[in-house]
Amino acid sequence: MDAGADEPTTAGDLTETDRRLEATILELLGRRAAASTICPSDAARAIGGDEWRDLMEPARRAARRLVAAEEVDITQGGEVVDPSTARGPIRIRRRR
């Protein structure tokens, strides 16, 4: 999958891939226990196939949008972190 193949048509628009990543994050979380987490790579792999690595940053951005929408939290070491400053591996969980 070419992560840049569906560029937004105007500034601020979400691409089809952006929308799919958000939906996939929520779907994957919905299949797990309430306290479970996923990695952004889980969503990237689900829609990206062999090219999932190209979707890692878009998946992290999708998670940040879902935090802003108050649907999920981003955690590191089991603690909720500010997604704008989180560096390194993150986990995503449903908002409690």
Rank of each mutant, 00 (worst) to 15 (best):
D50F: 04
R61L: 13
R65G: 09
R60W: 02
A62E: 04
T37K: 12
A62V: 08
R64G: 12
L55N: 00
A44M: 05
S41W: 05
P40H: 01
A46W: 01
I47E: 00
G49F: 12
A62K: 02
A59G: 12
I38K: 06
G48L: 01
T37S: 15
W52C: 09
D50A: 07
G49N: 08
G48N: 01
R60F: 03
L55F: 15
A44Q: 05
S36M: 15
R65L: 09
A46Q: 06
G48F: 02
E51L: 06
A46N: 02
A43F: 07
A46C: 04
A59S: 15
E57C: 04
A43M: 09
R45S: 12
G48R: 01
A63G: 15
A44W: 03
I47P: 00
R61K: 11
R60Q: 10
E51F: 09
T37Y: 09
I38T: 05
A43P: 11
L55D: 00
A62L: 06
D54K: 10
G49K: 04
E57R: 14
D54I: 01
R53I: 11
A43E: 06
P58W: 06
R60L: 10
R60T: 12
A59H: 02
C39V: 11
R53T: 12
T37V: 14
R61E: 10
P40M: 03
C39K: 11
G49Y: 12
R64T: 14
G49S: 09
M56N: 14
P40C: 05
A43C: 07
P40D: 00
A62W: 03
D50H: 06
R53Y: 11
E51N: 08
D50I: 03
S36C: 13
L55K: 01
E57V: 14
C39H: 12
R65V: 08
C39A: 11
R45C: 10
R65P: 07
W52H: 07
W52I: 09
M56V: 14
R53A: 15
G48V: 00
A44N: 06
A63M: 10
S36Q: 15
I47R: 00
R60H: 06
R60I: 12
A62H: 04
I47Y: 00
M56H: 11
R60A: 10
G49A: 09
G48K: 00
T37H: 11
E51S: 09
D42N: 13
E57M: 11
R64H: 05
E51W: 07
P58C: 13
R64F: 01
R60Y: 06
A44D: 05
R53F: 09
G48Q: 00
I38S: 02
R61Y: 05
I38F: 04
P58A: 11
G49L: 10
C39T: 13
W52S: 02
A43R: 02
I47F: 01
D50C: 00
E51A: 10
I38E: 03
L55G: 01
